[in-house]
């Protein structure tokens, strides 16, 4: 595994992106995601209207991999339905677990494909998947809230 395959320009640029690093006013859901062993600690906030994700914010701190993954994810899910977001999360996790390898299928992940090589670095997998697991949790929470209405 070469470092250049991981710390690509796409990854380092996204890792410092400030685009989604602003708290939302009255988010519909807010979920914290933590990697206890390394100190990655993020908060995902979503503003959802009629089943569509209007805004996504990622706050907190972590390594370049976790932060890049989170900003790419926020970019990707804005403007998508919650069902589409759920599908993307499954696809991303599948890519990292190597259960989805078809490049055509992965095209939907757009820039998130830049993190594909993390699947060869077991020590860093949890950094890449943190925001996506947090997203899954947020979507579940939204669904629960909907059902209890």
């Amino acid at each position: 595994m070469e470092l250049g395959d991981i710390y690509t320009e796409v990854v380092t640029e996204y890792s410092r992106s400030q685009k989604h690093r602003h708290p939302l006013e009255h988010p519909d859901v807010k979920v914290r995601g933590v990697n206890p062993s390394c100190g990655d600690d993020i908060s995902l906030e979503l503003k959802v209207k009629d089943g569509n994700i209007e805004n996504a914010a990622i706050l907190g701190s972590g390594c370049a991999i976790s932060q890049a993954s989170a900003s790419i994810m926020a970019d990707l899910i804005e403007g998508k339905s919650t069902a589409e977001a759920k599908h993307l999360a499954e696809l991303f996790l599948g890519m990292i677990r190597k259960t989805v390898t078809d490049e055509k299928e992965l095209e939907e992940l757009e820039d998130a494909v830049a993190l594909k090589n993390i699947s060869n670095m077991p020590a860093r997998v949890k950094c890449a998947v943190l925001s996506w697991h947090t997203l899954e949790e947020a979507l579940d929470k939204l669904k629960d809230a909907e059902e209890s209405h």
């Binding site: 595994m1 070469e2 470092l3 991981i6 710390y7 062993s37 390394c38 100190g39 990655d40 972590g62 390594c63 370049a64 991999i65 670095m121 020590a123 860093r124 950094c127």
Partner: peptide
């Protein structure tokens, strides 16, 4: 501007083992 985990990954590529985290 460099997270300890990224530092440890980069050092690892040079055959150096350090600990990162809390």
């Amino acid at each position: 501007d460099a997270h300890p985990h990224d530092i440890a990954t980069i050092l690892n590529a040079d055959g150096i083992a350090v600990r990162s985290g809390h």
